[in-house]
Design a binder for these strands. Sequence first.
DNA 1: TTCTTCATGTAATTAGTTACATGATTGA
DNA 2: TCAATCATGTAACTAATTACATGAAGAA
Lengths: 222, 222
Amino acid sequence: MSSSALTTTSYAILGLLAIKPWSTYELAQQMDRSLGRIWPRAQSKLYEEPKKLVAFGLACASEEQVGQRPRTVYSITSKGRRALAAWLHDPGAGPVLEFEQLLKIFFAENGTRADAMANLAAMREWAQARSTESLAIGRAYLDERGPFPHRLAQLELTSRFLTDFYALVGDWAHWASQIVETWPDEPGRAQPDLTVIEETVRRAAATAEADAQRAIQHGDAS
Amino acid sequence: MSSSALTTTSYAILGLLAIKPWSTYELAQQMDRSLGRIWPRAQSKLYEEPKKLVAFGLACASEEQVGQRPRTVYSITSKGRRALAAWLHDPGAGPVLEFEQLLKIFFAENGTRADAMANLAAMREWAQARSTESLAIGRAYLDERGPFPHRLAQLELTSRFLTDFYALVGDWAHWASQIVETWPDEPGRAQPDLTVIEETVRRAAATAEADAQRAIQHGDAS
DNA sequence: TTCTTCATGTAATTAGTTACATGATTGA
DNA sequence: TCAATCATGTAACTAATTACATGAAGAA
């Protein structure tokens, strides 16, 4: 009885069930390959959450046999569809970022320059690997081989975000590497570059005032 | 005894202690205002983790009195500095993104167009709010009023990343809003735009091959 | 036929969050 | 002097992860 209320994770699963019925293993796969990029959860969670959905009447489980072994396939109920719609009605929470590599740059003065450079190299590799994935998925859709083509209108929005995020990570790491390269051996003695701050302030200002700017450009300033 | 090993959260605290001794409350503040942007944790964690550091000999606690009430101030030990340096030596894990708002766009076909638009508006507001914060911090440093100016070389790197991330969120939400605006009332019937995918593929390819490109430009292709 | 990988889960543990409790300080 | 807010923590709970266990299917 892990009763309590439904979490975002529950709704993430429910959203998948709204596409089609899945076995738990398939759900886990899906989580691993696609959903996990925006809502990462461990495999084992995927075996628990659907039970909660069933307890709430939002999904139903059907037992199948594969060899001697039972498997559970979950489908959404109409109550489940209503719950999903209700969830979509309130705006969600903003992004939460957990970024260990960046943390290590933040504290870089306690290590060596080489440490920081290696860390940045790992970031670039990460960005490349993720981009390669995105690329393969995008190409599959261009070849009309992508799964659930009827969801493409939504998918093309989210995959653009992810692609741009990976590009941001890669570009930033590349930019930062060029700076860290010029640091002395002990990063604690590195000198700041005020023009970097100035440019950062300019960019922050642009985003902070973005809506106002756009409104003015469209001529509907108050 | 929540013994076990040190986590990234432990090292995040240890990194703060390397700057100066802090009371637990100050640590929590710091976590809330700055570190939390890249390593978000609940306040109460911040009362637990330092005890673990002490148990490992990486920090030491000193009791002070404020009125009748005791307060604990933690400082790093030299063993703690060595542990921090060792931690910095291995590259960290890549970014982990949890993004409920994007999840709701991913599943938008189960709600209304208005739901999706409201969700995107919330995203823009989030980006604006965070950018405003970044802006204030950046300006403080330009005025030489920022805390720990000797750490500016590191800070200017990480705050550039965050600023660009907030810009990405804001720009994407703005772009997506323009597309979602053209959707029919039921997002399930929205038509995909193949040129969007084509552009995404182009961008993903650029990042996936970025290092190779840069190597070629620098004339050190293998 | 045996080894490996795919598939289907459960159990134990822990990391983390929410909620609460209460003393000190400030200012209206 | 009373309310509000700052400061300092603890306790209860739960979400999530890691590790384990084992059957089925396919390859060598």
